[in-house]
Every structure is written in structure tokens, then in C-alpha cells.
Computed example of a mutant assay.
Amino acid sequence: MAISLNVYLVTDGNGREAVEFYRDVFNAEVLAIQTFGEGPSSPDHPIPPEAKDRIMHASLQIGGSVLMLSDTFPGMEHTIGNHITVTVNTDTADEATRIFNKLEVGGEVKMPIQETFWSPAYGSVTDKFGVQFQISCTPNNA
């Protein structure tokens, strides 16, 4: 049986910016992006004008993984939480450092990228969207 895990992020109206940011950081391919306005409509549940351009669903191919995200629907509470940590494993320290350096722009470094006993390059950063990342180089295992 094949099992894959995907990280799903929820943004607060800046989903399109997040898609472009992660596309650039990870050299990702945007697989899908759909706004609430592009989704099916129902007279019983009309889409308010302020929701039409928000992201209903997006997915990005990053190596062998898929990152998914959506915006909140207007009126829904958006909570930036610390319960989601995305672990990014690379096979070179240079790539780990490159990704870390891009994620830290506008974000907050929790642990600078550095050599640790388990990795030649490890760091922890919360990006400008409030998402926590652990970046780690794992040679021969990425």
C-alpha cells in the first residue's frame, strides 16, 4: 500500500502570494490553483464578492511531495498556529541553506542554519506567513 503525506496550509486572503512564494523557494510546479469564484456556484450559497479572488485550493509539486493550501472564507476565523511544522530534507547543505535563507525573509529565525550532530545544515524558521519550518540536510537520504 502506498501512503503519501501532504502539508495543507490555510492562509488569510494572501494565498496567491503564498503560492508564488513557495513556488520560488522550492522551485515548485503549480499543479492547481482555483479561487472560490471559479468553483461551482449555488443559489442557496452564493459566493460573496470579497471571496471570489481568494484561493479555494492550490497544490504545488515540490520534488516528490505536494504542498496544498487555501485561504479562509471571509468571516471564518484564521488562526496562525504553531501546530504545523514542515520539515524540509535536502541532500546538500548548500540547498538547505538556500531554502532557509529564502524562508527567513520577512520571517523569524528560531535556530540559525548550522551544523548539528544529526545534520551538516539544520535550522528552524517561521516564515512571513507564520508557518514553522525545520530545514535539514540529510545526505544520501533526502
Results as ranks from 00 to 15, higher is better:
87 T>N: 10
79 T>L: 07
62 I>G: 09
94 D>S: 03
106 G>T: 02
96 A>C: 04
60 L>C: 09
38 E>V: 02
127 D>V: 12
63 G>V: 04
132 Q>E: 15
46 P>W: 01
49 P>W: 05
105 V>I: 12
137 C>W: 14
57 H>P: 05
120 P>L: 11
101 N>F: 00
65 S>G: 01
124 S>A: 15
138 T>K: 15
107 G>C: 13
137 C>Y: 15
73 F>P: 02
60 L>V: 08
92 T>K: 07
112 P>Y: 06
112 P>Q: 14
135 I>A: 08
106 G>K: 12
70 S>F: 02
83 H>W: 03
102 K>V: 01
98 R>P: 00
118 W>M: 11
138 T>I: 11
101 N>K: 03
89 N>W: 01
44 D>P: 02
74 P>R: 06
78 H>V: 02
77 E>R: 13
56 M>H: 08
67 L>Q: 04
101 N>Y: 01
77 E>Q: 12
62 I>C: 09
110 K>R: 12
86 V>A: 05
61 Q>G: 07
81 G>C: 02
126 T>N: 11
138 T>A: 14
91 D>C: 05
119 S>Y: 13
56 M>Q: 11
94 D>A: 07
41 S>V: 11
104 E>T: 13
116 T>G: 10
58 A>N: 03
107 G>P: 09
120 P>V: 07
87 T>E: 06
79 T>H: 07
140 N>V: 10
78 H>E: 06
111 M>L: 09
85 T>W: 05
121 A>S: 15
54 R>W: 04
92 T>N: 04
61 Q>P: 07
39 G>E: 05
80 I>V: 05
115 E>Y: 06
98 R>S: 01
128 K>W: 14
63 G>Y: 05
135 I>T: 07
68 M>H: 03
57 H>F: 08
112 P>D: 15
91 D>M: 03
